[in-house]
Simulated scan of single mutants.
Amino acid sequence: MKRNILLCALLLLGIQLQAQEFSKPKEIPVKGNFTNPVASPDGKYALLTQEHNHGVYLLNLTTYDVVPISPNTGIGYGYTWNADSQTFYFKEKGEKEYFSNSKVKSYSIKEKTASEIDLNHNLLPSFNGKNEIVVHTNPFTLQIEATNLKTQKTWLITSNEGQYYNAILSHDGKRVAVHNGPDIWVYNIDGSGKGKLIGQGIATSWSNDDKYLIGFLDESQDGHSISNSEILLFDVENARTKKITSTENQFEMFPSLFGENQVIFSDENSGKIYVSTLKL
């Protein structure tokens, strides 16, 4: 227990505690417990899932209606939006299939229909329907790679030893944020140069101008259950971290930036969804 507390303290030493201006979070009045919200580019919708990535749900951020899209277990991870905000993508497996056999489905909000598309589900998290280049973890080497979907050419991005995960492509497609243990690194998409250590935590979203990453850092006193979690803002250019929430009873996680620096995030303690505005 003391070791875990000491580790958390060490991680927080590099965090500047003066918070950015963060408006008082507004609770989204939805029934049920949800997590991992990902807002559409136009800010009109958000994708949600439930505990253990159970199911995919579509939240209308104007009416607060929640529409169940798929009830299957374990599929609420890695879903992503088309750049037009009218289509989103998620993975789904058959009842007797393994997750490695998952197929990618495209859902049209206008038509209210889902159809299978020809895309490896491992490439899904950085796919927006229009980009030719996607980033992903090689499941065998645990390094981050990029693939050109048009030419099928694949190349290595990370060059250091480690087990990398959760690659997040920048909006301009020139850089990628990756994770290696508790560390967040940013690499050039073409694999040139060395990676840059940005901070520690879990990054979940780039700002529209690609100058910042937003994410969170959770804590555990027993090494198993979460005892707290706060939202962090990472200044990519200066490699500085700022803590932008500080609460005892809320476990803020999975923040997603959209619109004019608006943030949607989940409270893992209550299963509620909140929105706020961040002044960068």
Rank of each mutant, 00 (worst) to 15 (best):
A46P: 02
E219H: 10
S205K: 07
G271A: 12
K130T: 08
N131V: 12
E161T: 05
E95L: 14
S225E: 15
G162W: 06
L278V: 09
P41S: 13
S246V: 10
P139K: 09
P68F: 03
T87F: 06
I144S: 03
N128S: 06
G173E: 05
W185V: 01
Q20W: 07
Q200E: 09
S276L: 01
A19D: 02
S159Q: 09
K211P: 07
A83E: 12
V134L: 04
T245G: 04
G181Q: 10
Y45W: 08
K26H: 07
N122A: 12
E237Q: 12
L124W: 13
D209A: 15
L169D: 00
L119F: 07
T80E: 03
I198A: 14
G195L: 14
L6P: 00
E237T: 15
E268I: 00
L10Q: 15
V263N: 01
I157V: 02
D222W: 15
P139T: 14
S220T: 07
I75L: 08
F216G: 00
K31Y: 06
E219M: 11
R240E: 04
V176D: 00
G201F: 02
W155Q: 08
R175L: 13
N53D: 15
P125G: 14
P41E: 02
I28G: 13
N53L: 13
Y212T: 11
A239I: 03
I226S: 09
V38A: 04
G162H: 12
E260H: 07
A177I: 02
S70H: 05
G94E: 13
L217N: 14
I157F: 03
Q221N: 09
L257D: 01
F251Y: 06
L213A: 15
V186M: 04
I109F: 13
L47I: 05
S256W: 00
T49N: 03
Q200R: 11
N4D: 10
Y212Q: 05
L11K: 04
Q86C: 04
K91T: 11
V134R: 09
L61D: 05
K24V: 08
G199M: 08
V275I: 11
N72Y: 06
A9H: 08
G94M: 13
L47C: 01
F90G: 04
A19K: 00
T80P: 09
Q86F: 05
A167T: 07
E92Y: 08
S100N: 14
E97Y: 10
H179D: 10
